[in-house]
Every structure is written in structure tokens, then in C-alpha cells.
Nucleic acid binder design. Structure first.
Lengths: 227, 227
DNA sequence: ATAAATTGACCGACTCGTCGGTCGGCAAAA
DNA sequence: TTTTGCCGACCGACGAGTCGGTCAATTTAT
């Protein structure tokens, strides 16, 4: 390994260390209340050094989110790759998601702030990162959905729309769980959700009456990609 | 009307005016970037006057959220009261929710900030206000669910859990829609969701296989009230 | 091999604009 | 004359980002 490579490796390691400290402080205090000085202190380096690696607080914030999303995507992709049977693949994906949500529950507030930031910031990087993550997960989900249709577990449904719906639902349940003070088991909530979505709530008779409308909706879906 | 009553009415009106200005500025810039001076300017009053009506920025922020939630609760309750038939009642509730979401789409970021604020703030008012709103809506939803079971439209399901699930899902879809740059119709997304939840995605054969597990989950639910 | 020179990572005191909140005074109403 | 509501100049804390200086490691010169 050349000297340059070593140096750049050291640099990367330090960068990581700063991000780690930033995760801790941002997570604890939120974006606005977290001071760069706090992060520097926690990383046991000088404040000026932080600025050698990240030119603004925003950039550091984005790096933190980036790291989370990289992790999440990697875990989900790996989890999907471990299974062939689409039913167990679906289960594995949900399980992995729950694990991630549970271990990151303490960072829920900063996630919300990040989204708010993304919606407001002129810097399109934030929104793009969110969309990239959603795209990756939606692809995984759509794939599983298609397989489930193929093995006749699922009825005719637009795979992309369903996959996107699932993403929204997952976030929604997670958020609600957080806002409800984690008073119940997140896993139970997901199980309940799965039963509702799988089986539906209508009685057989009622389902027959609604069948035409329902079929149309399921087949057509709703999803269109953002511009 | 006595002099005092008139005076207090004038005071309330001004309070409302300040809240209105605050909604505009908070919505546009977010909690942190919004300056009290901006709000005062927009309301065409002096900065000091704002502090005659709200003692801190936090308090004003809470008042803004309060007003939204009061509106939302009132609209949903009114909407529910207009119908007797549970099927059309459910439709009406969903319709009202979509309307509210659509007209408040511009304020999505501030909603996220509010939730983040609530999770982090020492002031329990924020979280309590959120939970009160959720409770009101969940009661409405559980009521409709019970009626739907009674008329044999819905199968056996824990009404409270389902209602709470719906709340989470609604927020999730809304959020996703916002984050996706409103690229599709929110109403279509909701329709799709309703079809999935009503009818379920499993084929008849598969549903039979899963039936026992599903029934158990639906009946038991997941929801426990936060301490 | 040793000294001198160079580099660049690291640091934290400092700057400077910002903004929540205060307060003394003013003007209109009572 | 007193009270009430209103105002905006002012204050002080605060924190992002800067920058000149330090020092250890590396390179070059002797």
C-alpha cells in the first residue's frame, strides 16, 4: 500500500469517526440544538477539524442520513438475497425492516427533521437521497410481489403500486408507534397489518359485491414516478 | 354585551390574527427559520405585541398546531355525523381526510417538525395534543369499524387496532405522497389502499391456507394505549 | 546520519450577524 | 387622569464558520 493510500484510508476513518459522533449528537439533540462544538467534543477533536472534513453543518447532516440509508438498503438487499421462496422472502424483508426500525427508534425525531429539511432545502441532494432509498426498496418489494403473483399467492395487483403503498404504510406504522410512546409491540402491529392486507377485512358476501371496483383499483394502481 | 366581553373578544380576534400570520410564516420557513419579527410584520403589528399574546415562540408554535388539529377533528366529526350508513360514513371520513391533507400539503414540512419537536421537547403539551387528536380520530374509526362488522360488511377484527392502523397508514401515505413530490393523485392512492385493505391480496386458495393465523391476528389486534 | 526545510492535519480563540425576549415610553380609550 | 394596548429600539446569548498558528511527520539537503 502506498503512502497516499494509507493517508486516504486514515482520512476516511476519521471521517467515519466524525459521522459517528454526529449521529450520536444529532440523534440526541436534533439538528438545530446540536452544536458543531458538541460533535467535535464527542469525537475528541477540535471544532476546526470537523470543518476539514465537512464544509457545512448541512453536509455533515446529509452524510449521517446517507450512512443510515446505505446501511438500511444493504440490510434489506442482503435479506432478500437469502431467500428464494417469495413468501419467506417477504417475511424476511419485513423482519429486517422491523429490526432496523427498532434499533433506530431513538433516531426517529432526527429522521422527521431530515425529511422536513429535505422538503424545504434548496439543496436537492436531500430529496434525491430519500427517493433513491425508496426506489431501491420499492424495486425489492415489486419483485417479491410479482413472484407472489406468479406462485398464485397474490391476486392480480399492480406490483409497483403495492410496493410503494407498503413503503408508505411501513413508515406510517413506525411513526405512529413512536408517537404512541412505543406502548405496544411493533412486530405485533406489523403482523396485524399483514393479516389485514393479505386477507382483507370484507366478508365473503360483501367482497363479492365490491369485487368489480376492487379488481379495477388493484390492477390499475396509483403510482407515478416523481418528475 | 359588557365592555369586558367586547374587549376579550377583540383580544381573541387579534390572537387569531397572529396565529394566522404564524401559520403562514412557519409553514413557509419552518420553525427555526421563521422569525418572530417576520410573523409580526406579516400580521402588520409590532414584534412586542406578539409577546403580549404568546409568551414564547414555542407557545405560538403549539397554538398553530392546536388550531390545525381542532379544525381537523371538527371536520372529521362533522363528516361522520352526516351519515348513518357505516359504508358511506367510512367513505365520507376518508374523503374529508383527503381534502384536509390536500389543502394542507404545503404545511407538511412543519407537521414533521412539530412531531420532531414533540418527541424531543420537555413540554409534554406537544405530545399530548398529538395523542388527543389521534384518540378522537381513533374513536371515530373504531365506531365505524364496529358498525361495519355489525352489518356484516367486515369480518371479525379488533376495531381499535384496525382504527389505529388506519391512522398510521393514512399518515404514511400522505407523507410518501409529499416526499414523492405529489407526482400522483392522493385520492387514487387512498382508493388503492382501500381496495387492498378491503379485499385483501391473497388468492382464495392461499387465503384458506393462511386462514387460521390471519383470523387470530385480526381478532387479537396489537394496540395498547400509551401509559 | 543528522539537520534543516516543508508540509498539512489539527486546533480553538475570535468574529460577526442573528434573533428571542425585554422594557420604557407613547397614544388612544375610558 | 388613569388604564390599556401597542410598539420597536435595545440587549445579550449564541453558534456557524474562519484563520493564523502549532507541531509532528516526512522530505530534502548537507
Amino acid at each position: 500500500m502506498t503512502k497516499q493510500q494509507e493517508a486516504s484510508k486514515r482520512r476516511d476513518a476519521k471521517r467515519e469517526a466524525i459521522i459517528k459522533a454526529a449521529i450520536h449528537i444529532f440523534g440526541q439533540k436534533g439538528f438545530h440544538a446540536a452544536k458543531i462544538q458538541d460533535i467535535a467534543d464527542f469525537a475528541s477533536i477540535g471544532k476546526g477539524t470537523v470543518y476539514e472534513y465537512f464544509s457545512t453543518k448541512d453536509e455533515l447532516f446529509l452524510a449521517v442520513y446517507d450512512k443510515w440509508m446505505d446501511d438500511f438498503e444493504a440490510q434489506m438487499t442482503a435479506s432478500a438475497a437469502e431467500h428464494n421462496n417469495p413468501v419467506s422472502k417477504a417475511d424476511a424483508l419485513i423482519d429486517t425492516a422491523i429490526d432496523f426500525y427498532e434499533t433506530h427508534a431513538q433516531y426517529a425525531a432526527i429522521l422527521l427533521e431530515f425529511w422536513a429539511h429535505a422538503l424545504r432545502s434548496d439543496d436537492k441532494h436531500f430529496l434525491e437521497r430519500i427517493r433513491k432509498m425508496k426506489q431501491t426498496l420499492a424495486d425489492l418489494g415489486a419483485d417479491v410481489t410479482r413472484q407472489l403473483k406468479k406462485v398464485r399467492a397474490f391476486t392480480e395487483v399492480d406490483a409497483v403500486s403495492f410496493s410503494r403503498l407498503e413503503l408508505g404504510i411501513s413508515d406510517g406504522i413506525f411513526l405512529q408507534w413512536i408517537l404512541d410512546g412505543k406502548a405496544y409491540s411493533l412486530r405485533d402491529a406489523y403482523k396485524f397489518r399483514q393479516s389485514v392486507i393479505g386477507s382483507g377485512l370484507m366478508t365473503t358476501a360483501f367482497r363479492k359485491v365490491m369485487s368489480l371496483k376492487t379488481k379495477k383499483h388493484l390492477k390499475e394502481g396509483f403510482w407515478k414516478s416523481p418528475e
